[in-house]
């Protein structure tokens, strides 16, 4: 029988530097045949292995239409710090995709509001790419993106393309600006972008990803302006050891983040999003 815990070898095909501590990696299974049958939904994640160091769950940051799989990684732990040292042509272990993606099918015909904080834009980029190529399938697209400083933002070289997407709006904000850093956007938390927000609750869905405190806050604010619990989707982050609902680490009340999530309707996790 197949062994879900056994990774497959993959090759780093390309690396883009996003900021001082974050890079985007384009990966391909070493076994070409395997890659042919490989597909995913934006919002799903992969388990990446550096043998001898360990394994980590990392979200996919593009769509199957892009060809190879991309993942955007900030070097914070043992595995991700070692991944940062990889060069083009290096290898690593990969298995997946796991978890639920963003509800793109359900969102068809609706206005899309994306709210991201920091690294939270990574799992949402696939949604933006998808909407860009299937523009007529969706209503208005609004992206609100906040980060600690302009230097902490990711995908900055793609903002120009996103501004070009028809019927869309991109709003950027940062918590603060280090001296000497040019910045033309807002200053403040993502919620400070709410007054200027175009998206109205009717016929809309909100997809949110960022630090858990931020998501809790954003979800509350969205509720106050009329979004229903089932119109808001959050992508959660937990440490995972298996990715397939066995190791127990990512339990959130009666849910496994790895298998029932990471994308959840706010309705399903509202009581548990306060630490439990």
């Amino acid at each position: 029988m197949s062994n879900d815990l056994k990774p497959h070898m993959a090759i780093v095909k390309d690396i883009t530097i996003e900021n001082s501590n974050t890079k985007t990696y384009v990966l391909e299974f070493a076994d070409k045949q395997q890659h042919k049958n490989f597909t995913w939904d934006p919002g799903q994640f992969m388990m990446l292995s550096l043998f001898g160091v360990g394994e980590a769950a990392l979200s996919i940051s593009n769509i199957p239409e892009d060809g190879l799989i991309s993942t955007t990684i900030r070097a914070v732990g043992n595995v991700t710090k070692k991944i940062k040292e990889l060069k083009k042509g290096d290898t690593l272990g990969m298995r997946g995709p796991y978890g639920t993606g963003w509800p793109i099918k359900e969102a068809k015909g609706k206005n899309i509001l994306l709210i991201a904080g920091g690294m939270g834009l990574a799992p949402l980029r696939g949604v933006i790419n998808h909407i860009a190529i299937k523009r007529n399938n969706f209503g208005h697209l609004e992206i609100i993106y906040g980060a600690r400083t302009p230097n902490d933002m990711i995908f900055t070289n793609q903002f120009r393309d996103w501004y070009q997407i028809e019927k869309s709006r991109l709003d950027l904000t940062v918590d603060g600006i280090p001296p000497g850093t040019p910045w033309e956007g807002k200053i403040g938390l993502v919620t400070s972008c709410f007054p200027a927000m175009k998206t109205r609750p009717q016929n809309s869905v909100a997809l949110v990803c960022g630090p858990e405190v931020m998501m809790r806050f954003v979800a509350k604010c969205l509720e106050t302006i009329g979004f229903k619990e089932n119109q808001i989707f959050l992508s959660l982050e937990r440490r995972m050891k298996c990715g397939i609902g066995k190791c127990g680490h990512c339990q959130l009340g009666p849910k496994y983040v790895c298998k029932d999530g990471p994308v959840f309707p706010y309705r399903d996790i509202k009581p548990y999003i306060n630490p439990l």
């Binding site: 815990l5 360990g54 394994e55 050891k241 298996c242 066995k246 190791c247 127990g248």
Partner: peptide, 26 residues
Amino acid sequence: CYCYDVYDTLDLSLKKGKRIRELDSC
């Protein structure tokens, strides 16, 4: 109770190793 932890160990050559899973506790 089935929760487990997963980690890698290398031998002193730093070239060969094993992936281990070990019972964990909440």
